[in-house]
Design a protein around this nucleic acid. Structure first.
Length: 427
RNA sequence: GCGAUCGUAGCUCAGUUGGUUAGAGCGCCGGUUUGUGGUACCGGAGGGCGGGGGUUCGAGACCCCUCGAUCGCCCCA
């Protein structure tokens, strides 16, 4: 018979197991715990939407929409897209379910996202994020609340050497005036810019500000600053955010060239970035931002809703998991070793095992393989306590081993153990 | 979309300038030793070298294509 070929996993997807999966779970569990402290409400959305949900919110013409979304047609010929981010889907859900009645509403979610991109370190076609949004709140206090939560999530994950980089893009008028000034500034030195930035000048001039190319950085230093274009309202909004963060004890630095590419962003923009030379920076390679977001007051309108202020962030679970270190799988609290193939011995072991689990003691049984090597396997597993059961001349013999602390936990089990001992093995 | 590096047993890898039946460690299975024990020893199963084509008397090693991985560029919602 011809050997059938095992299908390969889809490019850019990952199978997560063992220590890595434990780190992944730790990130999600920490996020869930902190999100409850801040009273964010859980939301679940479909992983796919009509393509227009993302296309309209992101902008039809961008590279993102044309090349980097995972889109396909369903059987009815409708264009669908696997969600590349949470925000647009949440906004759609907010509108179609009348969540406006709860506004302002704090929402948290997490799950898989999809982008049709070339995989590299910390970047996959299916990846996972945690996400928090506050919809319907125009006041700077919402930004502060959201950022305080992000900061606490990172701290409770035990991630060190990461700093909040903060900027403001101002309101619509501020942003437009600034953008125009930037275009003028860079156009005057166009020929000296990198090829990429000459392109960006037309398509996305703000992006020139965070170019990695030396040739560009010379001109970034003396580029027009957003601060010179802020309206009084925009300035006082930003001041309120920063003083709120100070009051909340969240450390931040001003990052004047931090921008968000899409037009609907207003006011606050931020990223948590590993400090230069930190262990975190080394671990992440060129994909350095671990959490990013901002205020997107224009997004919900672009989906046909009422003008609605909102602010949110998202963070890649895989990247966070890389930074929380190994979360090894815990050895069992109790390992039951059946050192005999007699049915009564195995059944005695099963009885203890069941009792242990019912009283909340995680436990596992070893009853296969070479009998004489079963105990060795248990020792190797690092279990806190080991109960071995054997058949000695027709009676069940048992030995319990472990340190005092481990044995104290097993107290509720002693009756069950004694009871199983009363049975006698059949030979 | 572009570039660089890489792809050999379940895992980590070694395989000289192409040459007889493809190797090690770990893991797994079995046995011996020990006998209250994570030891040591012996043995076993398991791959035909990502896939396809080519060069050659002969290719895991060279060439082409393809798939995938890794890292970087572009992009980054």
């Amino acid at each position: 018979m011809a050997k059938t070929k095992t299908p390969q996993a889809i490019r850019g997807t990952q199978d997560i197991f063992g220590a890595e999966a434990e780190s992944f779970a730790f990130v999600v569990e920490t996020f869930e715990r902190v999100r409850k402290l801040y009273r964010f409400r859980r939301a679940e959305m479909p992983v796919f939407e009509k393509t227009e949900v993302f296309a309209r919110s992101i902008g039809e013409t961008t590279d993102i929409v044309s090349k980097e979304m995972y889109s396909f047609e369903d059987r009815g010929g409708e264009s669908l897209t696997l969600r590349p981010e949470f925000t647009a889907g949440i906004a759609r859900a907010y509108l179609t379910n009348g969540w406006q009645q709860h506004a302002p509403v704090k929402l948290a979610t997490h799950g898989p996202l999809f982008r049709y991109e070339r995989p590299q370190k910390g970047r996959y076609r299916q990846f996972h994020q945690i996400d928090a949004e506050i919809i319907g709140a125009a006041e700077p206090q919402a930004d502060v609340e959201l950022l305080a939560m992000a900061d606490q999530v990172i701290r409770e994950l035990g991630i060190e050497g990461v700093t909040l980089h903060l900027n403001t893009l101002g309101d619509g008028d501020s942003r437009e005036a600034w953008r125009a000034a930037l275009v003028e500034h860079f156009r005057s030195v166009k020929d000296e810019l990198s090829e990429e930035s000459q392109e960006r000048l037309e398509k996305n001039p703000l992006r020139i500000l965070d170019s990695k190319d030396r040739r560009d950085q010379r001109f970034v230093a003396d580029a027009p600053k957003i601060d010179d274009f802020l309206t009084d309202e925009a300035r006082s909004f930003f001041d309120a955010v920063t003083s709120g963060l100070d009051a909340a004890g969240v450390k931040w630095v001003r990052a004047e060239s931090l921008v968000r590419g899409l037009d609907y962003y207003r006011h606050t923009a931020f990223e948590f970035i590993p400090d230069e030379g930190s262990a975190a920076a080394d671990a992440l390679g060129s994909q350095s931002t671990i959490l990013g977001g901002g205020r997107y007051d224009g997004l919900i309108e672009s989906l046909g809703g009422p003008s609605t202020p909102a602010v949110g962030w998202a963070a890649g679970i895989e990247r966070l998991a890389m930074l929380v270190g190994e979360k090894g799988e815990e050895p069992a609290s109790l390992m039951v070793v059946v050192e005999s193939d007699a049915a009564a011995v195995r059944e005695a072991g099963q009885k203890v095992l069941n009792t242990a689990r019912r009283v909340g003691i995680d436990s596992e049984m070893i009853a296969t393989g070479s009998p004489r090597k079963r105990y060795d396997k248990a020792v190797k597993s690092g279990a806190a306590a080991i109960l071995s059961l054997s058949d000695e001349d027709g009676r069940i013999a048992h030995r319990l081993k472990g340190d005092d602390e481990a044995l104290a936990r097993l107290d509720p089990l002693f009756n069950a153990i004694a009871e199983s001992m009363s049975a006698s093995p059949q030979t």
